[in-house]
Design a binder for these strands. Structure first.
Lengths: 211, 211, 211, 211
DNA sequence: CACTAACCGAGACGGTACGTCAGGTCTTTGC
DNA sequence: GCAAAGACCTGACGTACCGTCTCGGTTAGTG
């Protein structure tokens, strides 16, 4: 009854995922149809329905395929010792990617599907978000060891506070998603909203020493 | 050519918006159809197409209608002088609303539509988010005046740092959306990720004095 | 629930039936599809499914439409008094129609549908066959009155004996369907298979008198 | 290229033809599919496509298989000398077979395929109809020799006049297919439609003598 | 007796059509 | 005289089969 994966044609799989991603860019999420994907991929509709349970999973797998290349090595965030600079660089890159028209539509489509499909959200968390979040937490952990972050800080919350605002501004278009915004978020997040006493800025540090 | 608003039947308008909101709860976003709304509202399809340009705008207007009751008075966040406590209370309320099954599906639908429709996003920012954001900024401004927030803080960024993580965790289901999480976010956001020097916790204050 | 016939668009109805009949000629029964009819008729598929329960009924209605023109006047077979001549002429015409390439495929399609659908067979008997059979029986009755047919003859059986062989040869292609065959059938049917005693041929008669 | 018949697996062949015939009874002609036959027969689809060019030929072969048992001996109609009685008996048997629910659907399917496929019609004429028609003609010939049939009678036409009406009534359901109908057809066909002169009934004969 | 070519069951594949559903437009009709 | 009702064309849905194709595994006949 269930299809036999050993007989699966890899070329069709790749064609479908590529077609899905490309069509997302070209026609947008609302006009993405299984029929369109099948035609673009030169594939029968049944071949899509045989292997994917929903359009959302196709989109998800399309992203998975993109990340297949660097699959082996774990993601690593830069660690120069200067946390503020490193986070700024990474968040600027995030902003650049979100602003990249090639990824805009596909990413929004993925976000939408996750919003409405808990199962897909779990898969996303496990397969796509987890490695990235692990890298983020790793960088923060290293800073924590160096005394640059509060010892009792929940690193997951820290990650959310840094990246959450950017993602939200992008999704809701609640304002321009600029480099300046990214910088502001990093600074505000690190220093906190409360005022700092005189000379209490935790400045750039190298090897744990302030510079 | 354009319909004459003076002839618009208010009862139909309300029936349509109510039907849309109710159906969102019952069948979810994916299965919400114009046809279904029309039938539920006891209205011809044309009556919907005549007054709304897209399904997203209907959903949006349905939310607008909900907020119509308290339209006159501006939203106000509690201001006891204790910023941490006030923010905690408000964020806990936000979490509760997002976890309310009555609002879950409709809110996700609205978020989805905003994600894919810039025009709708602008309308959302103006009509629904603006009053709320204004209230948030107002409360933060008051705290800033009381010396509880950094004087150079961009209050919009501050709002994003506090509410962004919660919205994101809800949308992406990247983790359980609990009261504890809300509390952690408030604490971490206010104090910052950096460690605070000894005795530098900006504690609860009343009338600007630490308690 | 059921569609309201008063709102039915006559132009669509005619376009569908015409398209069905034409396509039957052109592509044959096996390749006749609802989808093809809809495209050819410039009509949505749903418009076909709304008004017809099956492909067979569409074909049937297409034939009904052909006969709509001469609907008012009842069919009449020639009655010169010479039964043999009249039947020969009529059966030759039948043969010609069955051999007409314009009607071949459509008629076979109709025959096939009737074979497999009793309800359709009843409709065929009532709407298409009945007037024709009535005319045939009428002619035979007139001959019976003139003493040219056995008084105890079941006219329905008589009709079957004359037209059955021709229809069968056409359907099963059990042999060439020629004018000669038609003539043989008429002669054999009228005279019977048994030998006639000398001078007993019931020859051509005019006004009941043998000629 | 062409498959080698010597390697053909007889068990598969029989399973396929049996499955086809059984499925015809059970689901009817319209729902008979190659895929269904293959599954029912426990056979790969390719095994059907390898040996049969079309569904119609499979059906045809299924009938051939049924007749395989009595293949060697030629079919023989009863010949008691009483033509009327013999024909009546045979036609009654024909009626019974056509009314047999086990054969109804399969026979209609075969008739349909023949109607639309001239090649199949030829095969049917040669392999299935020919022996039967030969037997019928043989019986009539014997009667002709005995002076019970007109000497100039075309026996093929005679066969058609006797069996055509029955087949037609069955295919078109133009009326109840009863024993009485069969009897009427035989009587009318033998005596002809014209009235017979006094004492001219060609009665039962034994050895050519009237009884 | 081993080899090898072919048939076999199985089932994935690119397709076509199915019958249904909804989108958005246009027409009719009843209040 | 508008708006409900709903028929219409369009097009995508998800399913069923089509006829072709590959895949291992028998199963003959050959060398």
């Amino acid at each position: 009854m269930a299809p036999n994966p050993s007989r699966r044609r890899e070329s069709s799989r790749r064609a479908i995922l590529t077609a899905a991603f490309d069509l997302l860019q070209e026609v947008g999420y609302a006009k993405l149809t299984i029929e369109g994907i099948a035609v673009r991929a030169g594939v029968g509709k049944q071949t899509i329905y045989r292997w994917w349970p929903s359009k959302g999973v196709v989109i998800f797998d399309a992203f998975l395929m993109l990340n297949e290349g660097g699959a082996g090595e774990a993601v690593l965030l830069p660690d120069t010792g200067d946390l503020h600079a490193d986070l700024t660089a990474v968040l600027r890159a995030t902003v650049a990617e979100l602003n990249d028209p090639r990824y805009d539509q596909p990413l929004r489509a993925l976000a939408t599907e996750i919003t409405h499909d808990p199962e897909l959200a779990a898969a996303y968390a496990e397969r796509l978000d987890k490695p990235m979040r692990h890298a983020k937490r790793h960088r923060l952990h290293s800073a924590q060891q160096a005394g640059q972050l509060a010892v009792d800080l929940d690193l997951d919350v820290a990650v959310d506070i840094i990246w959450g605002p950017v993602l939200n501004r992008w999704l809701q278009r609640s304002g321009p998603l600029t480099i300046e915004y990214a910088d502001s978020v990093v600074t505000a997040a690190l220093n906190g909203l409360h005022p700092r006493p005189r000379n209490d800025r935790v400045g750039r540090t190298v090897d744990g020493r302030a510079v």
